[in-house]
């Protein structure tokens, strides 16, 4: 009975705290001294621990960028590792301030779950990986196959739709996270593993013999991945959104970590001047420092630097920019003007 009462008491205190903490997220973040950022439990290239035990990756760098926008350096970030099944609850319950965990922007997540996707930082699509020895060259040959799938993801729903529409049978093998999916796939519990193509490339790179595995050419869905925040705090949403836009715009205007210091002292381009705090009071509008974009670029580099460092052609993941190139280079990455 005592324990029961204690549980109730703890629970209600937590709920009570939830009510009290409805203050603006930015004030909250500033007073605790860090951004609590939700990331993957482990996905090479996107969120992984380096040899020093520090979290690195494409999604992690975005967390650092937001931290730098607020605190001036990349240090003001703490991470919470979340599975596909726990991520939204963590965000809704204010356990984290921001979710940067290769999450697909969908209607129901945006509208029904009351979350705000601030933009897209990676245009992805769902694909399949199979062992070469199976002799499969197209997803249309997968009738009767066992498919490893992470539960609680949009890929699970796309998979069901794909096989139903193509009138094929399959055996779904539900898996909790990417690590287990990989070990089950390698053990032969399933014939193919399906997830976002970027994730497949990342997983393939971590296999002992990547050449024995083939990523099938079909992309069966649109998976625009991006960072997201809760509904209800638009000011916080704006900070996260414009951090993302600043990263993309910096690449577009040729601002990177090597020249940002020099450019910050003034250029002929008014857009760069506005962005780097040389003209106008743009930082103050967000409640941030005048040179917040300079801090972001110094901490993480621009979009292309983040991409190349974590998942680009020179990394083991080896993803090309493809449709994630700037619109000027034939991609669809396009940020609104800094004005």
């Amino acid at each position: 009975m005592n324990r029961f009462l204690l549980n109730i008491a703890t629970g209600s205190v937590l709920i009570g705290l939830g009510t009290l903490a409805q203050a603006a997220t930015l004030d909250d973040v500033k007073s605790k001294g860090h951004v609590q950022c939700g990331i993957n439990t482990g996905l090479p290239g996107f969120a992984y621990k380096d040899n020093a035990g520090e979290w690195q990756g494409f999604d992690v760098d975005f967390c650092k960028a937001v931290g730098a926008a607020i605190f001036g350096n990349a240090g003001g970030v703490k991470y919470t590792n979340l599975t596909g099944a726990t991520r939204f609850e963590a965000l809704k319950s204010r356990e984290i301030d921001l979710l940067s965990r290769n999450t697909t922007w969908t209607y129901s997540r945006d509208v029904d779950l009351k979350l705000t996707f601030v933009g897209v930082n990676y245009y992805d699509g769902q694909g399949f990986i199979a062992k070469k020895e199976l002799g499969v060259s197209s997803a249309s040959e997968l009738n009767g196959a066992s498919v490893c799938i992470q539960t609680g993801t949009t890929t699970e729903l796309n998979l069901a739709d794909f096989f139903r529409v193509n009138k094929m049978d399959y055996e779904p093998v539900p898996i909790e996270n990417n690590e287990e999916a990989r070990s089950n796939y390698l053990a032969g519990r399933c014939d193919v593993y399906t997830t976002d193509a970027s994730g497949l490339a990342a997983s393939r790179a971590s296999f002992k013999n990547p050449d024995e595995h083939i990523v099938l050419p079909e992309i069966i869905s649109k998976e625009p991945l991006g960072p997201l925040v809760r509904h209800g705090d638009d000011e916080w949403g704006d900070i996260v959104r414009w951090t993302l836009n600043a990263l993309i715009l910096a690449e577009e205007y040729g601002v990177d970590s090597s020249n940002v210091e020099a450019l910050a002292s003034g250029t002929d381009n008014p857009e760069i001047n506005r962005m780097l705090g040389n003209e106008g009071e743009y930082g103050a509008m967000l409640g941030l420092d005048r040179d917040w974009v300079v801090n972001v670029i110094k901490a993480t580099g621009n979009y292309s630097e983040i991409f190349d460092r974590n998942i680009g052609p020179d990394t083991p993941i080896g993803l090309s920019r493809g449709q994630n190139a700037s619109y000027k280079d034939g991609g669809i990455l396009y940020a609104p003007p800094f004005r």
């Binding site: 596909g84 099944a85 939204f88 129901s108 997540r109 539960t151 609680g152 699970e156 539900p174």
Partner: peptide, 13 residues
């Protein structure tokens, strides 16, 4: 637990 308590929960929130 896996169906209604997990996947349904996750897909519908």
């Amino acid at each position: 637990t896996a169906t209604i308590g997990r996947i349904s929960l996750n897909q519908t929130g």
